[in-house]
Amino acid sequence: MPSLLVHKLLPDDQFLIFASDGLWEHLSNREVVKIVQTSPRNGIARRLVKAALKEAAKKREMRYSDLDNIDRGVNFNEKS
C-alpha cells in the first residue's frame, strides 16, 4: 500500500525527493540526502539508483558487477 507524507515546503528546504520503496528499502534518508547534497545536479537520479543497487547486491552477498548477469524482472526482495 502506498504511503503518503505531507510536508509543508519551507524557505530552508533545499530539495524534494520522489522515490519508490525500491530506493528506501536499501538506502536510509541520511544516505540519500548525502548523495543529493554532494552530487552535481546532473545525474543525481542515476547516482541514487546505483547506490541502491550496490546496497542490494551487498545484502545478497554479490558484487555490483554481478548484477549485469541477472535477468530483467527478477525481484531482488524475494527470498531464494
Rank of each mutant, 00 (worst) to 15 (best):
L23D: 06
V74M: 10
F18G: 06
Q14L: 12
W24E: 02
R60Y: 03
N42W: 06
F76R: 02
F15C: 08
E25M: 05
M62V: 05
L27R: 02
F18M: 09
V32W: 03
D66H: 11
F15I: 09
L5G: 06
F18L: 15
T38R: 06
G43L: 03
K8T: 13
V49R: 11
H26C: 11
V32H: 04
E25V: 02
P11M: 10
Y64N: 05
K54E: 15
A51N: 13
A52E: 04
D66F: 03
D13C: 15
F76V: 07
W24C: 04
R30C: 06
F76M: 11
P2W: 00
R63I: 01
D21I: 02
V36F: 03
K54S: 11
F15D: 05
I44R: 04
H7C: 09
N42R: 12
L10T: 13
E25C: 05
E31Y: 04
I70L: 13
A51V: 09
H26A: 10
V74I: 12
R72I: 12
S65T: 14
M1N: 06
V6I: 10
N77Y: 10
G43R: 05
H7K: 12
L23C: 05
H26I: 02
N42F: 09
D66P: 01
D21L: 00
Q14Y: 01
L53P: 00
R46I: 11
N77D: 14
K59A: 13
R63M: 11
T38P: 00
V33D: 10
S65P: 03
K8E: 10
L5F: 08
V32R: 04
I44Y: 01
N75P: 05
K79A: 13
Y64G: 03
D66I: 03
H26K: 07
N69D: 12
F76L: 15
K8G: 08
K50V: 08
V49L: 15
F18N: 07
N42S: 11
G22M: 00
P40T: 07
H26Q: 15
K50Q: 15
R63T: 09
L10N: 13
F15P: 03
G22C: 01
H7M: 07
K34F: 05
K54G: 07
I70K: 10
V36P: 02
D66C: 03
L9V: 13
I70C: 07
K54P: 01
S20H: 02
G73E: 03
S3E: 08
L48G: 01
N29V: 14
N42M: 08
L53D: 14
S3A: 08
D13W: 04
E61K: 12
L48P: 01
L48W: 00
T38D: 08
L5S: 07
L16A: 14
P40E: 14
K50M: 11
H7A: 11
